[in-house]
């Protein structure tokens, strides 16, 4: 088992507009990307469990072969910069994803 952070070349979070947060994971080797893709770990139920999200709050999980990348987008509970927000740019929401274990 390897942690996703150790397999990825880039792993980050950011706002996609003020109402969504998007997590990006990129790999430098196609083999590693395939391994993560085929592991079946990056699923809606696992992401929802990890991020304490309801399935309805998850907008989508996308695998993009051409860029060897994975994108996960979900709704913010509070829009960027408004009352109750704690990450205006959404730039520090990726850490839990780093710890996912990939067989």
């Amino acid at each position: 088992m390897d942690r996703l952070v150790d397999l990825a070349q880039m792993l980050r979070s950011k706002n996609s507009g003020p109402f969504l947060i998007t997590l990006d994971v990129f790999f430098s080797e196609e083999e590693t990307y395939r391994r993560v893709f085929e592991s079946g770990v990056i699923t809606a139920s696992n992401i929802c469990r990890l991020y304490h999200l309801k399935e309805s709050e998850l907008c989508g999980i996308y695998f993009f072969d051409a860029a060897l990348g994975i994108k996960i987008t979900y709704h913010r509970s509070v829009s960027s910069g408004s009352c109750g927000d704690s990450d205006v740019y959404g730039a520090q929401q990726h850490a839990p994803l780093m710890e996912l274990l990939i067989p």
Binding site: Y62, F64, A66, G69
Partner: peptide, 16 residues
């Protein structure tokens, strides 16, 4: 190629 492809993804809800 990674840095440019990654930027295509950047801040967007969908990769492509």
């Amino acid at each position: 190629t990674l840095s440019v492809a990654a930027h295509t993804f950047y801040e967007k809800d969908h990769p492509y």
